[in-house]
Design a protein around this nucleic acid. Sequence first.
RNA 1: GGUCGAUUGGUCAAGCGGUUAAGACGUCGCCCUCUCACGGCGAAAACAAGGGUUCGAUUCCCUUAUCGACUGCCA
Length: 482
Amino acid sequence: MTPVKTRFAPSPTGRMHVGNLRTALYSYLIAKHAGGTFMLRIEDTDQERFVPEALDIIYQTLKDTGLEHDEGPDKDGGVGPYIQSERCRLGIYQKYADQLVEQGDAYYCFCSKERLEGLKRTVGGKEISAYDKHCLHLSKEEVQAKLAAGEPHVIRFNMPLEGTTTFHDEIYGNITVENAELDDLILIKSDGYPTYNFANVVDDHLMGITHVVRGNEYLSSTPKYNRIYEAFGWEIPTYVHCPLITNEEGQKLSKRSGHSSFEDLIDQGYLKEAVVNFVALLGWSPAGDREIYSLKELTEIFDYHHINKSPAVFDMTKLKWMNGEYIKAMSDEEFYPLAEPYLKKYVTGPYDLKKIAAMVRTRIQILPDIEEQVDFFNAVPDYDVELFSHKKSKSTVDSSRAILKDVLPLLENAASFDNDTLFDILKNYAAEKGYKVNTVMWPLRTAVSGKPATPAGATGLMEVLGRDESVARIQAALRKLG
RNA sequence: GGUCGAUUGGUCAAGCGGUUAAGACGUCGCCCUCUCACGGCGAAAACAAGGGUUCGAUUCCCUUAUCGACUGCCA
């Protein structure tokens, strides 16, 4: 068996779409699971849409996600160049197109835009066109004359009009279409660049790709590619077409969804490992019940035969949950560097950010959640006195006032202002007075935070705030309570 | 319009002729708890519809419906 070789072949046109990312991931996993080679090829044959910065995004995303390629523009593996515009300059595509023309499987077409327009018809609000093989019937002499005269032209593939073409996809099974349905697609554009359709076939063959992994929007055109492979007498690769990823409305993910690209997600405070993990499970599932996997673990267990046929909705809620799982699984030391920028932004007081980070870690799902967890450190928000009433803690406005008054001097004189000491003091106080611990803690936590939910209990918060600030906040609360 | 494909709870998703139709997210309830979380336990929630084939269909076939892709000198 020939060793597996897959490729990721993006067009440098912008950010990395999550659908693209998943295709890259599956492509990588298929290769790596089999101990094969994962290659990167840049498909920049569309000069109109080319965005130079997109090249950096591709490299950076591959690096961030850990999808390290074995071969590519920056890593020669002997079948380069790996950028299609460079291959074009070498005349590779022209050479193979010429061969097809020679064989009679392709032909020059000089039809004008106007003539092509005339071929179009509108059905159901959509414009459709099928080329009529007009130029197929040009004689050799006519073609030579037009070429010599420098007439603009393309090269088209001559699809058969009869019979059927069947191809096998690993996910979708055998698919058969009538050859008459196949249009004479353009191989070489009038600017001399090959189309995706042609460049893909030529490159995948020349570069030894064994498994073609791509989105299922290519399912319909795959029979055409097979005609090209067959015209050359080349071996047809194994096809793995991946299902679509849609937004909550079942529509194709677009830039407007706000989370359509990997970079968007990272900007929104998701961890790259979580995104990779989540995307892996959209359209594919492992054998057991487990859902959290590292890239390395995915490589070990990935089996493309379990890729789904149906499209999957990109569910942000579940991504959030998974991101939270990754954060919870981190140590405080690992988490701190990630949290630090957010903490510094929202906590400007002289507090121990490492302690705050540790408090917050199990309570957030994405990094920006930190803000609402820590905003009270800077200043107690304006809260209603009714916040002191809490049924479960048996706390009322009156009991709160009494307790805060009692406890204030104890705190002012506490031997040390750490969590454990404070807790002991307050616990003893509660026992002496016959209060539940909750009844004592509730007003304190409310007083120092002004919030119904905080990332730690009363004593934990006071430790971070320090004696002076804690006392000041309790005094302020007492004034509020009258 | 044509061609191709898809259709299991709100979402992801097991299942591959016989099951009480897994599991996860989310939702709700209970427990734990110095609040909220975390964690634990539990609940509600699905085979698009109709025909076949079969002793028996979520699983196989057909029809319909719905959704999607393609139908570009874009990939």
